[in-house]
Design a protein around this nucleic acid. Structure first.
Lengths: 248, 248
DNA sequence: TGAATTCCCTCTGTATACACTACCGTCTCC
DNA sequence: GGAGACGGTAGTGTATACAGAGGGAATTCA
């Protein structure tokens, strides 16, 4: 906790939310463990009111679970839950791609996507991909997915995708860093990038079904990464959120 | 407001949430209109703390929108938003049906669904369907959809479907009552019920793609109802939530 | 010795007071 | 007459006090 005097422009509620989210994702709190308001007050340094606010938001975000008798506990996820969350995200992104394809997208709107693609191409060109390049990829990948989602021009859908991606292990970039430790790393990235190209092509040609299908399959790469990472049992420290996984 | 002394077993927060939700859905507040905390305090009779809590929850629910400078306003929806929300719900229910089909469901789990189907059959048998029968249908239909969703046995998916159905016009029963005023009423109900039968059949035979497709199409009946109701411009009072629609 | 009951303590739910910010209206000056 | 600045007024963000409920531990009785 280096920043004691954290920027006053951000509300106490947001500060508490960030601090508590980190706390949960870092795994310092066990799944199922109650997170009391007073405890949270001590940790965050803000008073109970914004802490309560933050807890409610984290519950909606899916990281916490309400205890029937009151208060909140850290939510536990099974491996199945995570795989389902990925499939869910893929389904929603597939819908977004289909909307974009069916409704038509101007070439002006497609430009930023294509720029994104080119930048990613530059990254995956190196053969052993550096860790830095992986970090850049994560950012660019997140950007690509955000842009694609917006192409649907559907506020309700964008909202739902954002919520589905809020869980770190369900987000499009959730398991990319885990790949960096895998021998198959580059291969997977190349496939992912091909998916990106295909979906843009499909949208351009107004092939809704194709755009939808490819985005669904694209999400399944994340599931594949997760399974590989879990099997190899290596570099799991790159995936702090996995502390939330329980047997199941 | 007949119930001044509303049941003490329910928290003030929930009471405020219900009261404010009613207020918004009734259309007494215009879309875009700010809903101040003090105003909400007067209306609900509880203090600011639970009111704030309720406002946050209603925002997550999708009925309110945060104002950047603070506070909340009533959210506005375009007709397109509503149609998209319906398609979205259908997509998610389709995924649930596919999960159920692919993963297999015991005949014991299917039984309550089939009971539901039989009860609905009893209702749609009458030729001019009474308004009471429509009400019963709404309840049974909601039950069927809830049971079907649970067949997916996927907590993340169930959660997401619940959220997607929270918007009244996106819920499976959102536009059923609107039908009751339409001449095509019975026909539409018969088709809907056929969808119900088909999806159960598909799940039983583990036909994932078929189960998914039929649920998507099933949701589109709601879109059709909406369009019919809007075109006929009749009995819109059966759809109070439409007060939230703005031109668009 | 085991089970049940009671008491206490901790925690949440709620109310309210205080401070600060943003917005709106008015007044003044150019 | 218009534009900018100043002041007032809501209205939210935050802190904190109080009350009530739930859970756990210890004690007592069978």
């Amino acid at each position: 906790m280096a920043e004691r005097e954290t920027d006053r422009s951000v509300s106490q509620t947001v500060r508490a939310q960030l601090a508590l989210r980190d706390l949960v994702l870092s795994g310092r709190l066990r799944p199922g463990e109650r997170i009391s308001e007073l405890q949270a007050v001590e940790i965050t340094g803000v008073s109970r009111t914004p802490v309560r606010m933050a807890l409610v938001r984290l519950e909606e975000e899916g990281l916490l679970e309400a205890i029937p008798s009151g208060g909140f506990m850290v939510k536990a996820f099974s491996e199945r839950d995570i795989l389902d969350s990925i499939e869910l995200r893929g389904t929603l992104e597939g819908l977004a791609a289909r909307f974009a394809a069916e409704r038509g997208v101007s070439s002006r709107d497609l430009e930023p996507l294509k720029e994104c693609l080119n930048e990613i191409d530059g990254l995956v060109r190196q053969d052993p991909i550096s860790v830095d390049a992986f970090s850049s990829y994560v950012a660019l990948n997140a950007r690509f997915h955000a842009l694609l989602t917006e192409l649907s021009r559907s506020a309700p859908l964008i909202r739902q995708i954002d919520r589905a991606s809020a869980l770190p292990f369900a987000s499009p970039s959730g398991f990319v860093m885990a790949q960096s430790a895998l021998p198959e790393a580059r291969q997977i990235l190349l496939i992912a990038q091909d998916h990106h190209r295909v979906v843009v092509d499909a949208i351009e040609n107004r092939e809704g079904a194709r755009a939808e299908a490819i985005m669904r399959e694209h999400a399944r790469l994340a599931a594949r990464n997760l399974r590989l990472a879990l099997r190899n049992r290596t570099h799991l420290d790159l995936l702090p959120a996995l502390a939330l996984i329980t047997a199941g």
